[in-house]
Design a protein around this nucleic acid. Structure first.
Lengths: 305, 305
DNA sequence: GCTTTTGCTTGACTGAGTCAACTAAATTGA
DNA sequence: TCAATTTAGTTGACTCAGTCAAGCAAAAGC
């Protein structure tokens, strides 16, 4: 049996979010659509080719009610219904161009409504809220397919994010002091200041607008690419992002004609070490240091390309 | 303008949570209460003594509709309404014993519904979900952040936050390119790497665990303190945080025996310039530059202590 | 003291959503 | 194989949650 205080918290959140959704749904006020209409049109637009039964089940609507909505949509020429050849009773629902235009207009209104709300927030808070929403959904939605993370080049704010997340992570987990964040900031700053788009690159892994990981390749001269600042956020461990990021680095370095990739890491970072090893890196040197407070084993690994 | 991928994520969550709430609200199916009834009864039970107007505002209900619900509740003896002595038009609403019993019964049903859902989850997941809900609410609920802003020294992650927020801000507002974020990262990194706690300092303004602003003093040698990276997040403009941060800098620099504070800024930052002027800084030089893309007027200001 | 505003109520309505009965195709099973 | 049952969707008939406009009385403004 679940804790009663926990359940009260959920109810509290539900009351709050019911209000919040009520505010957002004002977006439909001056359209000919009700919230239910919008949900139906959305579902058909996204899952083109569903049938009415599945729709009623997914949206928890009364079949009779849904039938009437669909009839109206057909009359208004928002959707088309063709009988399913596999089952003549059932029908395949698809949006028309007109329906898609409506759908997009509704999307724009909804987006504007949310953007207005989010623009009032402090920096980083929208991202934090969305990250938390992902967490809630991942837990409560049995069929939540964790939206795929994508990897993209860096843009404004990303380098700062790298400094922040690494700085905080190493401080929390390993007790490193602020000199480490300073080092990261300097490395990252030099990277941007002297950025050579021909030979250097930064990859950011993100999911739904939230940054999850990073890595960068800098030109170490002498045909050596330096792999630096590999990081994967706690929330995204175990998805193989680290490997993907390192693979990007290797492919890029090969393509650009580097003859070797070199990197510096610390022995307690087991997950990272496993990735390097699997990718073919070999340990070439190791030295004890206390550059950032607690004693640690710094390691240099290289991969010949 | 907030990132579009972020907004899509919010909409996705909203669709999911609309469904989720729909499922939970089945709890009311075999009670004589509608969802709105329950919300009203809840609100009166918790805020005993509210008046109808406040209720309508909080729950975003039509006054006419609410009036009818309250009338029914009075007839059923769930609530009592006594005229407000301070305003005879208004009335004070309180629950009766019978009303409270109903309220508690609804609570039990709602709890049972949520518990059933949560009992299917793995160990620790309900806690994680609730923690994430708190995060969402703390960010999105405007009246859930009464906490005042405080100013404190920097700690792990803060410097990265400075880089990120300035990098993003100047890119979005003034079209500066990534070299600017690079410069900020280098400045901030050097600050941490060579940090002299005797003569240097970093102030972070925060509220409820969220960073809102920053400034730092570095030792420029020769008795000159350099004020750098003054920033106030857009969510916190107009609260006087900028002035507070600059005042901290001035007081610190006096205390430490500096003879002058010097800073570099750009002319389009009107709010910042106003703060410097009011604090007694004077403009000593100005030069046109395009260090970060668009042309701008760099300015050097100093304050003799 | 007159007008305007505010807090709430009432009358008159609408349309979102429900329930039950129905048609037609598909499936089951003796 | 063919009657019985189930499934997919539609239609008729209804209700009741929620809205809009007008009204009343107390309070506030001029």
């Amino acid at each position: 049996m679940t804790d009663i205080a926990l359940i009260e918290s959920v109810r509290e959140f539900n009351r709050f979010y019911t209000n919040f959704l009520g505010l957002l749904n004002k977006a439909y006020l001056d359209t000919p659509f009700t919230l239910t209409d919008a949900r139906v049109l959305f579902e058909i637009s996204v899952h083109n080719g569903v049938n009415a039964g599945a729709l009623a089940r997914d949206l928890q609507l009364d079949p009779a009610y849904l039938s009437r909505i669909l009839k109206r949509f057909r009359e208004e020429d928002f959707i088309e219904a063709t009988p399913d050849p596999a089952d003549q009773r059932s029908q395949i629902l698809t949006v028309t161009g007109k329906g898609r235009a409506q759908f997009e207009e509704l999307g724009r209104r909804s987006n504007a409504q949310i953007a207005a709300r989010f623009d009032m927030l402090a920096d980083g808070q929208p991202q934090a809220a969305v990250a938390a929403m992902h967490t809630v959904r991942a837990i409560l939605d049995p069929q939540a397919k964790p939206a795929a993370a994508t990897i993209r080049p860096h843009r404004a704010g990303d380098i700062g994010w790298i400094v922040q997340s690494q700085g905080r992570f190493y401080a929390e987990e390993y007790g490193w002091d602020l000199r480490f964040e300073g080092l990261v900031a300097e490395v990252a700053g030099k990277f941007l200041a002297n950025f050579d788009p021909e030979m250097e690159y930064c990859w950011i892994a993100e999911r739904g607008g939230v940054n999850l990981g990073s890595v960068l390749i800098t030109n170490g001269g002498d045909g050596i690419a330096k792999l630096r600042l590999l990081y994967v956020d706690k929330a995204a461990r175990g998805l193989g992002l680290g490997k993907q990021l390192v693979d990007e680095c290797i492919a890029f370095s090969r393509r650009k004609g580097y003859r070797q990739i070199s990197l510096w890491t610390n022995d307690f970072l087991h997950a990272a070490r496993a990735i390097y090893q699997k990718a073919g890196f070999r340990l070439v040197s190791e030295e004890r240091h206390r550059m950032f407070g607690p004693e640690a084993n710094g390691q240099t690994w290289v991969l010949d390309l």
